[in-house]
């Protein structure tokens, strides 16, 4: 019986056929079950030996059943998996891939560097009072430095800020030192556009005010920014320059090794120690607003840089006018799509 049963088990081609074999031999009224049931009729001295014999047969059949069942299940699963195979090289549903504007990416890089150094990040108005854009920054109305910043004047006498520096004044009027901030935002210059000039562009401005802040602190800060932007080998260089709202004033350059193996000094921006006239102008505004004069006698540094130039160098963008034309073929490059 055992051989017949095992032959039948192995001959079953489906789980259903196997189940039928199972029922036939080890089911409630199966052949083996019946044999076991008939043991009671045997004399007690034979019963034990015969029972053991039948149990061996039953175990062998059960083992064959289990093995066959598992093999059939695996085959069924394999067949199901094979039937479910798809061509994964076909494109997926073309859902949109979002992205950030290249200027935002560069800003995020820079702001990340300054956040790590504990700077707060602020923004401010783009339509500005002449006083905040010029006078309070030690650029009186008659000053030749005004020629350096061609201005969009507004009909109501205000202007489009020519730099983010007015936020130095606004921030100091509202807050007390010590502090470390960076200001980001759009600025405007009244000039014809070409590949390297735009009427609207972006600046990042830094301002640190406290007691005993020195120009070497400024240099160290710019050097940290250089390393954050361009890696451990980047260096910073200062050269004397002039901005009316700082004294001493400097231009800073960063030594940059680009991925193509070229290396050079990039002039990135201007900086210096906050001019005492700026602190005085702030205290005057604070006093007029009923606040304490807390800036005279403090020291601080300020720096500013244009973002478009950094983005152009970083991504190899040849023309500044690409930034705001919003051609999807241009700005769409600054996300994960290949080709």
């Amino acid at each position: 019986m055992q051989d017949t049963a095992i032959q039948e088990i192995q001959g079953a081609e489906t789980l259903e056929a196997l189940q039928a074999v199972k029922t036939k031999y080890v089911g409630k009224s199966g052949l083996v079950t019946k044999e076991l049931g008939s043991l009671g009729k045997l004399p007690p001295e034979e019963r034990k030996a015969c029972g053991a014999e039948i149990n061996v047969v039953r175990a062998a059949i059960q083992a064959a059943l289990d093995e066959k069942e598992s093999a059939l299940k695996r085959a069924a699963l394999d067949a199901k998996l094979a039937s479910e195979a798809i061509d994964v090289t076909l494109p997926g549903l073309p859902l949109p891939a979002g992205g950030l504007h290249p200027i935002s990416r560069v800003l995020d890089d820079l702001i990340g560097i300054y956040r790590q150094m504990g700077y707060a990040v602020i923004e401010g108005p783009e339509v500005e009072e002449e006083h905040y854009n010029f006078e309070a920054l030690n650029v009186p109305w008659y000053h030749p430095a005004r020629d350096l910043q061609d201005t969009f004047w507004l009909e109501d006498g205000r202007l489009l800020r020519t730099h983010t520096s007015p936020m130095q004044i606004r921030y100091m009027v509202d807050h007390e030192p010590p502090f470390k901030i960076v200001v980001r935002g759009k600025v405007y210059r009244y000039e014809a556009t070409d590949a390297t000039h735009e009427a609207m562009f972006h600046q990042l401005e830094g301002l640190v005010v406290g007691d005993g802040i020195s120009m070497s602190d400024l240099k160290g800060t710019i050097a940290e920014m250089a390393r954050g932007l361009y890696g451990a080998s980047a260096k910073a260089r200062f050269q004397p320059s002039y901005y009316p709202f700082v004294e001493p004033g400097a231009d800073f350059a960063v030594y940059w090794e680009n991925p193509r193996g070229e290396s050079k000094w990039l002039e990135l921006g201007g900086c210096g120690m906050v001019h005492p006239n700026v602190f005085k102008a702030v205290d005057d505004l604070r006093e007029a607003a009923g606040k304490d004069r807390v800036y005279e006698g403090k020291t601080g540094f300020a720096f500013g840089l244009g973002l478009e130039r950094i983005a152009m160098l970083k991504y190899g963008i040849p023309d500044i006018r690409y930034f705001y034309a919003n051609d999807p073929r241009v700005i769409g490059q600054f996300r994960g799509e290949l080709g």
């Binding site: 707060a120 990040v121 923004e123 640190v208 050097a223 910073a236």
Partner: peptide, 25 residues
């Protein structure tokens, strides 16, 4: 100017500046 050392400012910000970055974040 090339001889300027490189240091970093150490300061503890005044309480009026706490949370100044909220909008930017």
């Amino acid at each position: 100017f090339t001889e300027l050392p490189e240091t970093l400012p150490t300061l503890r910000v005044h309480e009026s500046n706490i949370g100044a970055s909220a909008q930017s974040e």
